[in-house]
């Protein structure tokens, strides 16, 4: 387990919403919501380029530790409001998925097992 606060600090992520003092179990990278619903696990940090409001509902449903939006993409207004309401950490990076995942991996965060 690694604290989200440490990740934010080490990777220079921009925090838009949510309380980042929480533990991260593993990472999940996907842009397909149905896939995240099927395969992401509790306390995963989710990396995606989707900015649609539905990502908050998915994160909530799966009890994810937070969402990192890649490529410098900004959340839509509705997404922002909903994330604030649900206290889901919404984080931004200008790096693409491949690299932000690589950097998370180097911090010791891996994909889900099996």
């Amino acid at each position: 387990m690694i604290n989200l606060k440490d990740i934010v600090q080490k990777l220079g992520l921009k925090v838009v919403t949510g309380d980042i003092d929480r533990e991260v179990s593993a990472g999940y990278a996907s842009d397909l919501l149905s896939d995240v619903i099927a395969n992401a696990q509790k306390d995963n940090i989710w990396i995606t380029l989707q900015t649609h409001v539905n990502i908050v509902a998915v994160a909530n449903l799966q009890e994810l530790a937070g969402i990192i939006l890649v490529n410098g993409r900004q959340p839509e207004k509705a997404t922002l409001q909903k994330a604030e309401q649900e206290n889901i950490p919404l984080l931004l990076t200008e790096l693409p998925t491949f690299e932000i995942v690589g950097k998370l991996y180097e911090l010791g965060i891996h994909g889900n097992r099996g």
């Binding site: 593993a26 990472g27 999940y28 998925t97 995942v101 690589g102 991996y105 180097e106 965060i109 889900n112």
Partner: peptide, 16 residues
């Protein structure tokens, strides 16, 4: 999964 895929390749030096 995608996360593990990117992580392994990045660690071995593939660039983004």
């Amino acid at each position: 999964p995608m996360f593990e895929t990117c992580g392994r390749l990045y660690k071995k030096g593939l660039k983004g």
